[in-house]
Structure formats: structure tokens, C-alpha cells
Simulated scan of single mutants.
Amino acid sequence: MLLAAHQGFSQAAAPAALAQAAKLEAEKKYESAYQVLDKADPKNQQPAVVLQKEKLLLNYYLIALNFQGFGLKDLAAGETVERLRGKEGNYSMHLLDIPQTLARLQKQFPQDYRLSQGLGDYYYRAMLCHCGEQDKTEAQLLDLVIEHYGRAHAHQLGDFMTYYAVGYGHLAQGRAQPSVAPFEKSIALNPQYPDAPYNLAYALLQLKKPAEAIPYAQTSLRLYTDPALKADAARMLGELYQQQQQPAEAKKALLQSLDLQPQHYATVRSLLELAVTTHAADATAWATRLYRLNPADDQMFSDIMDIYQAQNQWAEAEAFFSGQLPAAPKTPAAQGLLHLYLAILNMQLRRPQVARPHFLTAQTQLKKVAKPDNPLFQMIEKGLAESKP
């Protein structure tokens, strides 16, 4: 009888404690809010209180130990969680094994699907911060997110973030098609959250549906305020327009991305590909800009040659690289790679006598910086044999 009376008192006290904790949370007094909840339910027997504890710990922790110990603090004026998180300080630590506690409560309250949503919240946050559940891979964590949020969704629980997380979980594991519906639901619940249309556009890009993807890419571009994220959205929009064979729109989007990130390799590469494909007069200018990002980058040389090769513009590629000889950096890597690719292009153009000196120079320069087993030397030896007078 005493136990029953105590439980009854605790249950009755819960609404008041939740209301008081919510008020303290709004005032950024996160430690005090947790203390109120812990006093109301010290043994973690009440789902509503435990879920509110979880919310405080996951949203406002300043330090975390294996994602089972969480440091909280009542913030002073001007302090924010973002600025303090991960830094040393005087914090109160709270130990709570969230998945174990919620799983126990699920057995006691099998119809309370808020607990499923709470488990989804935990595994999603653990995946994002890489600070807990070290015995699980990212794929395993994402599958747990999908599983637990799925149960909540099946019982009309969830919000735009839980649906977004399910879509992300599928997409991050290469499952574009099942990501579409949850992303669409997330957008319907909150049209102002830019990550959902961005990732939906990316999923549709993977599904080779550029026409369907373009409006979502446009939406994310409009909604993002962070320059890097806005540049990513514009770059993807440019790629979608390219796939739709709309070069003018593609160039406009790519230039918008480049304005935000002037040194971004992928954007410059896309603009070069667009110019070469459309035989634009500024192709050489874009190739030069890509080359100058890093004249000693083998990937850059390969990309430029591949772009010209795809349009069967071997002579144009050779002319471009030849044009870089006077101003190319005198470092061994930059000189060696430039001469190597000039040699390859001249061999393709059936000019072995022109290619051979480039092969010899490439060999001399690259020996200064590359190991003897580098595959480039096999290519050079083959070229020298084929270009021997």
C-alpha cells in the first residue's frame, strides 16, 4: 500500500514537474530543469519524464562520456550550448543509459510509441556525433534509426526531423528510392527546412530523375543561408540542368556556386566540362583556372584530359597543355606531370617524335619526387618503347 501510494504521488507530480522543467528549459537553465525531473522520477519509471530527461541531455549536453554520461549547466547571459560544447568547464554530470532505459520502459508500456521515437532520437544523435555506441557501425545505427522511427510513424507519431532522419538513413546507405517518401513527408511537415529538399533532390539525381529533382534543388538553394551549403545546392542544380541539356541554366547555377566558393575544384571542373561539351569560347579559360588550382595534381591533369577526350578534342587538349609550358611551376611534380600528359596526347595524335622528348623530361622530373614503383614510370617506359625512332 505504501508503494502504491508513493507511485500515485509520483505520477500526480509528473505534470507539474514537466511544466516547471519546460519553463526552466526556456530560460536556458538546463541543469535546474533536469534536477526537477530527476526529483520527480529518480528511478526512471515514467515515460513522459524520462523522455523529457533524454531531450535535455541530447539537446543541451556540454560534454558527453560514451553518450551515457552527460554534462549540463544553467547557462549565463550570452552563453550558448554551441560555444561551450566540448570545452572544459564546471558541469554537473548525469548518468543515463538511454537505450537501455527506454527499452525497459517499452516492455512495461508496449503501447507507448513515444518510446520508439525516443530511441530513434538517441540513435540518430549518436550517429551524428560519433560519440557513443562504438560497437556499432554507422550503417547499424542508421538502421536502428529507421526501425524505431518507423514504429513511431506507424502510430502517427513523429515530426519533420524524424521523417528526414529516415530518409537520410536510407540515402546514406545507397537506397535512394525508399528515401523519397520520408523526405517528401518531412517537406510537407516543414517546408522551411532546407536539408530535406536538398537531399530529396540528390536522391532523385541518383534515380536519374533530374526534371523531378530541379524544383527541390531550387528550393534548397533559396532556403539555405550558409554560403557553403548554398554553394552545394547551386552546384547540384547546375549538374541537374546539365543532365537536362539546359546549358545556359546550368552555367548560371554553377557560376552562382563559384561566386560563393571561388576555389572549389568540382565547380570549376563542371564549368570546364560544360564549356568543352558546348564548344564554348571560354573553354580554355576554364581549363586554365582548373589547372592553376594545383599544377602538381595528377587528378587535375586526368580530369582535363578526360573532359576533352569525351568530346574527341585531343588536339584542343594538347594545345591547352602546351600553352601552360612557359608559365608552369618549375617544381619536379608540376613539370613532370605536364610533360607526361603532353607526351600521352601527342601519342594519341600519332606524333611519337614529338611525344618522346616529353616522356624523357617527365621521367627525369618525376624520378625526383616519385618512388620507383609508381605506375607512372611503367606508362613512361611503355611510351618510350613505342616512340623509339
Rank of each mutant, 00 (worst) to 15 (best):
A139V: 00
A77V: 14
Q117W: 04
H170F: 14
G71R: 03
Q108M: 12
T162R: 03
H153K: 03
L157D: 01
L128Y: 08
Q134E: 11
L141I: 02
G78E: 08
T137M: 05
V81M: 15
A103C: 08
I146E: 00
A165V: 07
G86F: 13
E79Y: 09
E88V: 05
V145N: 02
P110D: 02
G158V: 02
L102Q: 09
D74W: 07
D143M: 02
A139Y: 03
F67S: 12
F160N: 12
G71K: 06
T80P: 15
P110T: 00
V145P: 10
T137K: 10
R125T: 09
T101R: 07
Y168C: 04
F70A: 09
V145T: 14
Q156L: 05
A154I: 05
Q106F: 03
T101M: 08
R125K: 12
L115K: 04
P110C: 01
V145L: 07
R104W: 05
A103W: 00
E82V: 15
L157T: 00
K73H: 15
Y164T: 02
Q108E: 11
F160C: 08
G71A: 15
D143T: 06
L119S: 10
Y91Q: 03
Y168A: 11
G167Y: 05
L119T: 03
G118N: 07
L105A: 08
E133H: 09
D97R: 07
L119E: 02
A152I: 03
H94K: 12
G86Q: 13
E133C: 10
Q108F: 04
V81L: 15
H155R: 10
T80A: 15
Q156H: 04
G120F: 02
E138G: 14
R83P: 13
Y91M: 00
Y149M: 03
C131Q: 13
L144T: 00
Y164A: 14
H153Y: 06
L84W: 09
Y124Q: 12
K107R: 11
Y122R: 10
G86D: 09
F160R: 01
L119I: 02
Y122L: 15
Y164K: 08
G89F: 15
L102S: 06
D143G: 05
E147W: 01
G69I: 02
L171N: 00
G132V: 05
A139F: 10
H148M: 02
K73G: 11
G89D: 10
D112Q: 06
L75H: 14
R85C: 14
L105S: 06
A152K: 00
R104D: 09
K73S: 09
H130V: 03
Y149P: 04
K87S: 13
G71M: 09
E88N: 12
G167V: 02
T137Y: 10
H130R: 12
Q117F: 13
G150F: 05
L102V: 10
G71S: 14
F109H: 06
K73Q: 09
H155L: 06
F70E: 10
H153M: 04
R83G: 15
A103P: 00
